[in-house]
Design a protein around this nucleic acid. Structure first.
Lengths: 143, 143
DNA sequence: CTAAAGTCTATAAATTCGGTAGATTTAAAT
DNA sequence: ATTTAAATCTACCGAATTTATAGACTTTAG
């Protein structure tokens, strides 16, 4: 399962993607519209700002807005930033690899195989899902 | 990521599947061979016994052994028992569904779509992975 | 200069995770 | 019947992580 933090991040980004190039959006607005605790959201947005996904403008009339284009932000990137690995086991992770203590021999471990498949499929689907894609889908569904 | 508990459970089951129909296996043996804390493993095996995946024999010469056939135990079942949902979001879970507070309208939410796809692919791959399959794979790799 | 916004630091509640201790029960072997 | 080896049960614990909250500080438009 994704953490709430990650879920919040995705919702906030989609909200900002819907308002792409319409100027800065207040944290407060996002928090209220998406039912996210404001202070928690603050920290999340800040983290995404540090990762260059968002930009912010301080002071009156300030707020957050997308730095990258909606087509260029996908779910893999967001999940990795917020929660870490996509894969279900550390020993099959591409970006967060860790050796298993239980695995006597990683090469002959029959378990990794299945999870490598799941990882690859998940990566494929999640990387196809960009903010642009999600917003488009959303608009179609709303009709 | 799966919890350690779940990873331990899978390793223990594979170990027992390798010894299917060869009599009860001591917790101690499994713990040592797979580097799992014994007391923690105890609780895990007990849970799988209650779920009718394993049987146990008490007293001298006792131990744990597979109740179901290795072909009949797959990773979906184990993960659901140990960690819960397979899906990444509660609102797309088949067995552990929960409504999202953030979702203003679940029907028009463009996010669920991507995660439904990931869920379906994961379920497909994980349900194909049975203990029998894993043991077979393991024996091939060991050659 | 002031109000409205993000930023930073610190903390805390709640939950989950990973693990342990010890008494009890069961059953085989002697 | 006694001993011994095993699972079972009950209870607990510490640490880490997750999910937040409070409040002082900084920046900027007007």
């Amino acid at each position: 399962m994704l953490s709430k933090k990650c879920k919040y991040a995705i919702h906030a980004l989609v909200y900002l993607a819907e308002r792409y190039q319409q100027g800065p959006v207040h944290i407060q607005d996002i928090a209220e519209a998406q039912h996210i605790p404001k202070k928690f959201l603050e920290a999340i947005l800040l983290e995404m700002r540090n990762a260059k996904i968002l930009h912010s403008k301080k002071g009156k009339g300030g707020g957050y807005y997308l730095y990258k284009k909606p087509e260029e932000v996908n779910l893999v990137e967001i999940i990795r930033l917020m929660d870490g690995a996509i894969s279900l086991l550390p020993c099959v992770s591409l970006n967060y690899y860790e050796r298993c203590d239980e695995c006597v021999n990683e090469v002959t471990c029959g378990i990794r195989d299945a999870f490598t498949g799941v990882r690859d499929e998940s990566l494929k689907l999640l990387s196809k899902s960009t903010l642009a894609q999600i917003v488009k889908r959303q608009r179609e569904l709303a009709k």
